[in-house]
Design a protein around this nucleic acid. Structure first.
Lengths: 203, 203
DNA sequence: CATGGATACGAACATTCGTTAGGCAAATAT
DNA sequence: ATATTTGCCTAACGAATGTTCGTATCCATG
């Protein structure tokens, strides 16, 4: 992560991520970050232009990762169910691989400057559109129920995103298992299919 | 809301809610709230003990509402599916009826003081336990798939909570319609049940 | 050896922060 | 009519905020 950067700067970004996640961007001071980096506050400015650059880097790096992930899915897979499964898997993969950055990405992007925030929202919408496209494809092909596409895509993403709130690496569930369970949940829901009664044709 | 309070204090709390929602608790200053109330900052302290009292009131008022809602559900309804439908309906009802307070409740509770935060988390866990109980009941009765109860309850709540991010009162979907769609989604998922082939007994 | 970038420092800046003190006028209660 | 409460004011406090300035040290490259 954070390519084309000094090692020290990457380190600072990494520390900032953790602090932003823990306390929130607005409640994290430059002095907090400096303390974490074991450096005087002023020294940070040898590496960064300002506090917002840190937030900016985190948000747009993650946006880039998510967009690449959904791009691959829509390039490679054909079946809507397969696409969805892969999109979920990639999404969970990113959330669990970069838990700090993900929380900041999901929660603190609105502290970006107005211009950058607008840009960010566009990227996020492109990502959501990736999910909408999958749902739409599923509906068109008759594989999915005729749901409101926008509504469904947002609901799916919602159920995925909360994972960062309770996921810990020590936990018993592995990212792929989480993804599998979520995919199954999204596709078939909670309710058990009632077994077809012997001899009765229900259609 | 905010029973046993001066009208003026209720007004201030209402304004604070909107600001906290818009900018986040940490990024909202007492002066912002004072300006919204068209009053000098110092005047607020005739009504409140401090900034945190506002956050505290919002979080615990909402916690109370949510707990009452799930309490009713578990008192009245018997069937797990019915319980779930009602829990979802009540949850969406509260989210859409108090959108500002809900966002603060869901997002900014961690800026409570350590003591109050601990209390809050207990209440939140009791609410989640209400959902776990429903899922558990459904599994025990054979109505639901044999899912991880904790995992399922959190996923359901996640998919519900994101509603506050995109719900606007002008929108075409009414709270009850949102609740119905979400209930259906949670119960049966996205995938269309394949029609049973004529004459073939699939069980 | 000289140069320049990377990294860090102490000191200080202007602002903003949450909050307190003390007072004053209008509304309310006795 | 008097006393009390309510609501707001001006002024100011100390602390914390993000950031700038000028300088010093290290290290790799010319």
């Amino acid at each position: 992560m954070f390519v084309s950067m000094t090692d020290r700067k990457k380190e600072i970004l990494s520390l900032a991520q953790a602090l932003f996640r823990e306390k929130g961007y607005a409640a994290t001071s430059v002095r907090d970050i400096a303390a974490a980096a074991q450096v005087e506050p002023a020294s940070l400015y040898s590496h960064i232009k300002g506090k917002e650059e840190l937030l900016d880097a985190i948000c747009f790096e993650m946006a880039d990762k998510f967009l690449k992930a959904i791009g691959e899915v829509n390039d490679i897979y054909f079946d809507a169910v397969q696409k969805l499964a892969m999109a979920v898997k990639n999404h969970i993969q990113l959330l669990t691989e970069h838990p700090d950055a993900s929380v900041v990405f999901l929660r603190d992007w609105r502290y970006l400057s107005d211009d950058r925030k607008d840009e960010f929202i566009k990227l996020r919408d492109r990502y959501e559109e990736g999910f909408r496209a999958i749902v739409r494809k599923g509906v068109d092909e008759g594989a999915f129920n005729e749901v409101d596409v926008r509504f469904a895509a947002l609901t799916i993403l919602s159920s995925l995103n909360w994972v960062v709130e309770w996921y810990h690496e020590e936990g018993k569930l592995q990212p792929n298992e989480i993804a599998d369970q979520l995919t199954k949940f999204v596709l078939t829901g909670l309710q058990k299919e009632l077994p077809v009664t012997y001899g009765l044709v229900t259609n």
